[in-house]
């Protein structure tokens, strides 16, 4: 899957989980940029992403993400493996 497609899908997941239609993600987006994205909802996002892409991340992978770009890259490399 291409980076672009992954980003679009991530956007859908974010809108759905965080219940906010106005979310427009870029690779540089961080939790500070999205009001509803806090440590409580973060894990809901992770679970939704894992479910949709049928992948499983390790704890240290999840903790290493700094922005949406890191998340998309993690999905991409999981899918390629």
């Amino acid at each position: 899957m291409e980076q672009q497609q992954i980003m679009e899908q991530l956007n859908k997941i974010f809108v759905d989980v965080l219940d906010n239609e106005d979310i427009k993600l870029t690779e540089a987006t961080t939790a500070n940029d999205v009001e509803e994205w806090d440590s409580l909802y973060h894990i809901q996002l992770v679970v939704a992403i894992e479910k949709y892409f049928k992948v499983k991340f390790t704890a240290s992978e999840i903790q290493s993400w700094k922005n949406v770009g890191d998340m998309a890259n993690a999905v991409k490399s999981k899918l390629a493996a």
Partner: peptide
Amino acid sequence: FNDYLYTPLVINRRDWGKWAV
């Protein structure tokens, strides 16, 4: 607490869905 206890815990138990939180 968020960085060193809550986050590792919730990641570890995330299969429980909302109840993990």
